[in-house]
Amino acid sequence: MAPSPRTRRTHERLQTAALALFERQGYTATTVTQIADAAGVTPMTYFRHFPTKDAVVVTDPFDPLIAEAVIAQPRELAPFERVRRGLLTALDDVAPDADDVARRRVAVVAAEPSLRPAVVAATAATETAIVERLVADGTPALDAAVAAAACLAACTAALLAPAHDTTAPGSLHARVIRALAVLRPTDTLGATS
């Protein structure tokens, strides 16, 4: 069931307040109480939306879309290609203004090494969702796990690429597309298909 408009607005207010505070005073120096106050809610309301402080940064609302986009790819494709194409499809469904919020979230994560375990856990949850859907659709478990892990690792590498990397495209959307293009199958002559 989709969240109500009121729930979505509160969720967005909390995330906006958290990002502003993290950017201004740093992740470690910011408390959940400060985030709740800035969003005009109680800490209890914060915890109804995000179970932990790090969840406001690493929780991705697109995870359910990713698993659905992967499973919607043609069954005759190899599992790896289903995941790769599914990620590209899910990325196309992300609203352009979401890239700015995602960019800010990624900048906070990149600046705060203590958030890496939360990123790993969030990625593992996405991976599990993809693997479960592929296995339910008849893909061997190992094939599904390798395909999901490889594609998600490429996306994570692209998102966390150093800001000073002048070879990486500017927008996060473009970075992920490039990472998934690197994984594109090639024929024996090296041409991409």
Rank of each mutant, 00 (worst) to 15 (best):
A29M: 09
E81K: 06
M1Q: 08
A98L: 05
A144S: 13
L88W: 07
R116T: 14
A125I: 01
L88E: 15
V120Q: 11
R175L: 04
A90M: 08
R24C: 09
R104Y: 05
E23I: 04
V70W: 02
V109C: 03
F22M: 08
A144G: 07
T28R: 15
T192K: 12
R178P: 04
L65D: 08
A163F: 04
E81A: 08
A121F: 02
I71R: 07
A110I: 08
A38S: 15
A2Q: 13
P3C: 07
L88G: 09
Q34N: 14
D165K: 09
L115T: 05
H11V: 05
A174C: 03
R175S: 01
G26D: 09
A67Y: 02
H164P: 00
D93G: 09
P43Q: 12
P5F: 13
Y46R: 01
C155I: 11
A129V: 04
T156L: 11
P43V: 07
A18T: 06
V109K: 03
V146Y: 05
P79F: 06
S171E: 07
E68L: 10
A2P: 04
T128F: 04
A39S: 10
E112G: 03
E127F: 01
P96L: 08
G26Y: 07
P140A: 10
S4I: 11
G40I: 01
R133I: 06
L88Q: 15
S4W: 04
C155Y: 00
P113N: 12
P113T: 11
T123E: 13
P113M: 11
T10D: 08
L180I: 06
L172M: 00
L142E: 13
A161S: 09
D165W: 00
V146P: 03
A145S: 14
A107C: 01
E127I: 05
V41Y: 05
A124I: 02
T188P: 12
S4C: 13
